[in-house]
Design a protein around this nucleic acid. Structure first.
Lengths: 386, 386
DNA sequence: CTGTTAGCGCGTTCAC
DNA sequence: GTGAACGCGCTAACAG
C-alpha cells in the first residue's frame, strides 16, 4: 500500500530521462542499446541514476516502429485443449526467452474463422514471424504467411500450397513403432482410429504408415490411396482404419458402434490377469492367443484416445481394458493413470526447434524449406504388455 | 504457389494508400476509423479500391503509439499445464474478441522469475491492462500492476498487498459443497489434500471452509488459524488437512506415506460393488458403514487429484477406488474416465468476467476493488456415490 | 467535406 | 563524446 502510489503517473519517456540526466535523447538511446563504449563513465552514471529515479522503461512499440522490428512473433495454435499444444508451447517460450523474442499466443479453438482473424491480427501488429499449428485447411486462409509474406514455420502439420519450414514428429516412424509393438505383443486385430485426415498431413502419414506395416510390405513405398477401410496382412493379422470425426457427434456414435461390434465379436483379451494390476510383472506375453482374436486400438492422438477410453469405459465398465488394448500417439497425463501404452512426442523440442528455425528466417537465411522430424518414444504400459 | 508472390513487397503504408487514392492521409485515417459520414461516397470508393489494390493493413503499433492505446492486454498465467488455466483462457479470448482486445498470453510456468520478467515485458509493450493468475507470492513482484500502475484484475487468487478487482470461484461455497456431499454420503474420515496454502488465497479459503464444516460449526465465523492438522467434528466424523507440496518430491512422498497409513488402517470402503461399475445405479447409500471408517480424499485442485490418483493406483492397483473415494475441485478430462466426483469451476465465465472487469477499468471506471465469486457445480460420480 | 500541420516515443544520421 | 534535426506510420487539431 505504501509502495503503490495511487496516482498513475504518466510513464516517463526517453525525453524525460534526457532532461533528468541533463543530456540529449541520443545518449539515452545509446545507453539503452548497450553502446557503453561511446559514453563517458560520468554521463553513463548520470543516465543510470535518472533511469532509476524515474523508473523509466523504454517503449517497445515506439522502438519497433522506428527500427522496423519489434521482436514479436506469433504462435497460432489450433487447439490448446490438446495437451500437445501446451507442451509445444513450453518449448516455444523457452526458446523465445533465450532469443529475446516475445511470443503472441493465439488460440484458434478449432475454428477456421478464428484462425483467419488471428493471422490478420498478427500481421496487423507486424510480428516478425509466425509459428503455426494450422487447423489443416488449405493455404487460402494462411495467405499473409510464408512464401512472399511474413516468415513462418509449420508445426506438426504441413499446409497444402504453403512452402515453409516445418518441424514435428516423425509420424511414419512413430506409427510403425506402435504398430510393430502391437504386432509383437500378439495382437492380430488392430484398429487404427483417427480423425478425418484428408486435410491433415500428420494424420495422413500416421495412417499410411500403419497400413503399410499391416499389409506386410515393410518397405518404404507409399501405398497411399484414399480407400479408408480394412486391410489384410502379416501372418493373418488384420488392420482396420476407423475415422472418428470428433466434431460430429452422430458420426462418432456410428464409428464407435462399428468398433463395438468388432469387440463383441472377438473373445476376451486373454485371461483373468488382463485387468491392469501390477505393471511390475511385464513378463513375456502369451502369444498362443485364447479363443478369438486379440484386438487392439491404436489411437492417432490423445483426443481420439480419450474419446475411445470414455466410450469403452461406459460400455464395458471399469474393467474395459480386459477386453481391448489401447495404444495412443501422445502421452496425456491420464495415460499413466489408466495404464494405456503411449508414444510420447518430443513436444518441448518441437517447440524449441520451431522458434530456432523461425529466428533464422527472420535473420534472413535463404535456404529452401526445411523439415525437422523428431522421433517419438514408446512408453509401454500394462494395456498392451503383461 | 501462384498466389504467393515470392518477393516480400514492403508493406504498404497509409501514405502509399493516400497517393494511390489521390488524396491525403487524413481521409484514409478517417476511413479506417469508420468516420464514413465525413467522406464523399466518391472518395470513399477510391480509398476502398486503393486499399484493396495495395492489400493495405494499418500498422497497429504506429496507431497505438499515437492514440495512446494499443488494445493490448496481458494475460499472465501461473501454470498452463493446469487445465483450469486453459479453460479460463477460452473465456478470456472470447471476451477479448467481443471487445476488440488482443490478449498477450504469458506463461510463468510456476517460476517467480518468469512472472517478474513477463510483467516487465508487458509494461514495456504498454499493454492497457493485465489479467493475472498470480503465482501467489507477495505483491513485491507485481509492482508495476494495480493500484497506481496499469489496471489489473486478479483471477482465482488475491495477492497480498495488491488492491485490484478479482474474479474466481466461490471457494468457501465450493469446499462446503464438497465436504457436505462426502458427509452426506456416509464418509466419516475425510482428508483434505492441498498444496501449500500460506501464499494462495483460494487454497486458504477452501481449506478453511472444509475445516469449518468438519468442526461442525456450520456458521460463517472464520475459524482460521495456521494449525494444519486434524480436527474432530460432526457426529464422530473426522477431518484432516494434508499438505502436498508438488514441487518437492520428498515432501510428497512423506505426505503420501501418512495417507497410506490412514488408508491401511481403515477397512475396505464398503462392499464388492465398490469397484466403479454402472453409475446408472446411484441409489441411496448405506450409511450404516462396514467395519472401520469410510475414508474419502478431498483434493483441493486437479494437480493434487492427479497426484493422489496416480499414487493410489500404484499402491492399491487398478481397483484403488474400492478402498478410497476421491473428490476433486476442478473437473479435468480424466475425471469422467476414472469416475471420481468433482466440483467443476465456471472457468469460461471466470475468464470472460475478468476481461469485462478489466475493460471497465481501462475505460476509466473508478469504483473500489470488486470481487466476483462464481459458484462451482458438483458432479457426482461413482467414486463417492453408489 | 477535405487537405495541412503537428506531434506520439524513439532511432538515426550528421554536424558540433 | 554529444546533441540537434528528421523520419517511422499514424492520429488529431486546425484551417480551407
Amino acid at each position: 500500500m505504501s509502495t503503490t502510489p495511487l496516482a498513475a503517473p504518466r510513464r516517463a519517456t526517453i525525453t524525460d530521462v534526457a532532461r533528468e540526466a541533463g543530456t540529449g535523447k541520443t545518449s539515452i538511446s545509446r545507453y539503452l542499446n548497450g553502446e557503453m563504449s561511446v559514453l563517458s563513465p560520468e554521463l553513463r552514471a548520470r543516465i543510470e541514476a535518472a533511469i532509476e529515479r524515474l523508473n523509466y522503461q523504454p517503449n517497445q512499440m515506439a522502438r519497433g516502429l522506428k527500427r522496423g522490428r519489434n521482436r514479436l512473433i506469433g504462435m497460432l495454435l489450433a487447439d490448446l485443449t490438446n495437451p500437445y499444444s501446451v507442451e509445444v508451447l513450453q518449448g516455444v517460450e523457452a526458446a523465445c526467452h533465450a532469443l529475446g523474442l516475445m511470443p503472441l499466443i493465439c488460440h484458434a479453438a478449432n475454428e477456421v474463422e478464428m484462425e483467419r482473424r488471428y493471422l490478420q491480427l498478427l500481421t496487423t501488429y507486424r510480428v516478425e514471424g509466425v509459428i503455426v499449428n494450422a487447423l489443416g485447411v488449405r493455404e487460402e486462409t494462411l495467405r499473409p504467411v510464408g512464401g512472399g509474406g511474413i516468415p513462418a514455420v509449420l508445426v506438426d502439420r504441413l499446409v497444402d500450397g504453403l512452402v515453409a519450414d516445418m518441424v514435428g514428429l516423425d509420424n511414419r516412424a512413430a506409427a510403425e513403432l506402435g504398430t510393430r509393438h502391437l504386432l509383437d505383443n500378439g495382437f492380430d486385430d488392430i484398429w487404427f482410429v483417427v480423425q478425418p485426415f484428408e486435410q491433415v498431413s500428420s494424420r495422413q502419414l500416421r495412417e499410411a504408415a500403419f497400413r503399410e506395416v499391416m499389409s506386410g510390405v515393410g518397405g518404404a513405398s507409399g501405398a497411399h490411396g484414399p480407400s479408408g477401410k480394412d486391410e489384410g496382412g502379416k501372418g493373418g493379422a488384420r488392420g482396420h482404419t476407423l475415422v472418428l470425426n470428433l466434431a460430429e457427434p452422430a458420426a462418432v456414435e456410428r464409428a464407435l458402434a462399428e468398433l463395438d461390434r468388432a469387440i463383441d465379436a472377438s473373445g476376451d483379451l486373454g485371461g483373468a490377469a488382463a485387468s491392469v494390476t501390477d505393471n511390475a510383472t511385464r513378463s513375456a506375453i502369451d502369444r498362443t492367443g485364447g479363443k478369438g482374436r486379440r484386438i487392439a486400438l491404436f489411437a492417432a492422438n490423445a483426443p481420439v484416445a480419450l474419446c475411445l477410453a470414455l466410450h469403452l469405459k461406459a460400455r464395458y465398465g471399469a474393467d474395459w481394458q480386459a477386453r481391448v488394448a489401447l495404444l495412443s500417439i501422445d502421452d496425456p497425463e491420464w495415460a499413466e493413470l489408466t495404464g494405456i501404452t503411449a508414444i510420447r512426442q518430443p513436444t518441448y523440442e518441437i517447440g524449441y526447434r520451431a522458434v530456432e528455425f523461425l529466428h533464422e528466417r527472420i535473420e534472413g537465411i535463404q535456404t529452401t524449406a526445411r523439415d525437422c522430424l523428431l522421433p517419438g518414444e514408446l512408453i509401454v504400459r500394462a494395456s498392451t504388455s503383461r
